[in-house]
Amino acid sequence: MDRVESITAATSEGVHGPSIPRLPVEVCERIIDHVATGVNLVYRFIMKGEPHLTTLTSCALVCQDWYYLTWYHLRQRVYLRDRKDVLSLSKTLHAKPRLREVIQQVVISGGSPGKRQPIRHLGTFAAMLAGKAPKLSRIGIQDAEWTTGSVRMEDIGFLGVFSLIDSVDLSNVTLSSVAQLSHLVSALPRLRNLWCYDVDCLQKQVESPASLPLNCANLEHLDVRWVAPAVEDLFVRISRASRVPNLEIGVDEELDPSSAPAEARLC
């Protein structure tokens, strides 16, 4: 923009006062970009009240121009807590196609932080947003209860359209069966990194283990801590079958370390 925009203040009687100078949009954009450098998306969690994030959120409320200037930073990581969030995101990306390049991470979660709730919108997200977030590289599932039949397996298959996804993060999740996790991994051909923290599983029996993901040989980093026996068994079998270069398994003190594979680092 080559000129300085101005806004006009109006009195309660409708009489316009003198123009109030306003910073050029380019300067505002530079300021917002500078604030955003303090938000590190490498971390799995961004604490509520983090000052840089709070400042960006305040900037987004100033006006419509500032909203879209901050959108690039605030929507690099998107939290989807229900189907309405998915529909809203889909509508926004349809109205502003250039914003599709912004999204790098998506977190599918239950409605309440810390409380595991059904995530039926995982399937909605996979089906509706397939091909609409070309830069998406990481997906997270947290505070979730993945119940049987709540997410169609064919919808999970749509995740393969997100061709850049190389990292998956599961935290505070209850699975109905370990086969759901195996299917999720199989749907992501470029998956390299997988974190599982506090993942329970209603399937208690491990005598009939789920088949290994087809792409498990591509995995490079597995970090497994405080998970159900069936989940741990899946990862141990993956590590033995594919020789994952970096495997970290958190175990209880009473567990015999000799039962873990030699290439694992016990935490």
Rank of each mutant, 00 (worst) to 15 (best):
Y68I: 04
Y68L: 01
H73R: 01
L74H: 08
R75I: 00
R77H: 05
R77M: 03
V78S: 01
Y79T: 04
Y79S: 05
D82M: 06
R83W: 07
R83L: 13
R83P: 02
K84N: 14
K84T: 14
V86E: 03
S88Y: 08
L89K: 10
L89R: 13
L89S: 10
L89P: 13
S90W: 02
S90K: 00
K91N: 08
T92P: 05
L93N: 09
L93M: 14
H94F: 11
A95V: 11
K96F: 10
K96D: 06
R98F: 00
L99M: 14
E101C: 10
E101I: 07
I103F: 10
Q104E: 04
Q104C: 05
Q105G: 10
V106D: 11
V107N: 06
V107A: 07
S109Y: 07
G110N: 00
S112F: 04
S112R: 02
P113R: 09
G114T: 12
G114Y: 09
K115L: 13
K115Y: 12
R116E: 15
Q117N: 12
Q117G: 14
P118I: 04
I119S: 10
I119P: 07
R120T: 15
R120S: 15
R120Y: 13
H121Q: 15
L122G: 09
T124V: 09
T124D: 08
A126R: 05
A127E: 01
M128H: 11
L129I: 14
A130D: 03
A130S: 06
G131P: 08
G131S: 04
A133F: 00
P134T: 01
P134L: 00
K135A: 12
K135Y: 11
R138S: 15
G140A: 15
G140K: 08
G140Q: 11
G140M: 13
I141T: 03
I141N: 03
I141Q: 05
Q142P: 02
D143T: 12
E145K: 07
W146I: 00
W146S: 02
T147D: 12
T148I: 11
G149K: 08
V151W: 08
V151H: 07
E154T: 03
E154N: 00
D155K: 02
I156L: 02
I156Y: 04
I156A: 04
G157R: 02
F158C: 06
L159K: 10
